[in-house]
């Protein structure tokens, strides 16, 4: 039993060490996983708003947290804003493109769609 405990303590230390290493994350994720999950699980105006807020907070606070804005955050925010505020959506799609140049093919496609929608109005 004592041996068991030693193993458990050793494991706990390894695990805790792992948690500390988590602070070395490249990106600032804020509440992303929680609000993304809730919006996916029960889509509603309020879960959508909560997710928009959490994405906006990531974009605004990443620098203060000495982390980068993660891939896809600006793009997702742009998509959620496209209907209400195409101007804002365009700005976010361009921000995604400048943060991650490899997103250009997809972002250009979304930007084109925005322009098409604007023309059809």
């Amino acid at each position: 039993m004592r041996k068991h405990n030693t193993i458990l303590v050793a494991l706990a230390l390894i695990v805790l060490g792992g948690c500390a290493a988590n602070n070395n994350s490249i990106y600032y994720w804020g509440n992303y996983s929680q609000t993304a999950y809730e919006y996916q699980k029960s889509p509603s105006e309020s879960s959508r708003q909560a997710h928009v807020q959490s994405l906006t907070a990531i974009v605004e606070n990443a620098v203060a947290q000495h982390k980068k804005i993660p891939p896809g955050i600006c793009a997702e925010l742009g998509m959620l804003q496209a209907q209400n505020s195409p101007k804002l959506a365009l700005q976010y799609f361009n921000q995604e493109k400048s943060l991650f140049p490899e997103s250009a093919p997809l972002m250009d496609r979304l930007i084109n769609d925005l322009h098409k929608d604007a023309r059809s109005l």
Binding site: I26, Y27, Y37, P70, P71, G72, A75, E76, S103, L106
Partner: peptide, 21 residues
């Protein structure tokens, strides 16, 4: 689908945004 982007991004990849794709 809401769980996979974070670990892949932290591993150093550009994950095309899942809600969009």
């Amino acid at each position: 689908s809401t769980t996979i982007a974070t670990p892949l991004a932290e591993a150093g990849y550009y994950v095309l945004p899942l809600p969009i794709t």
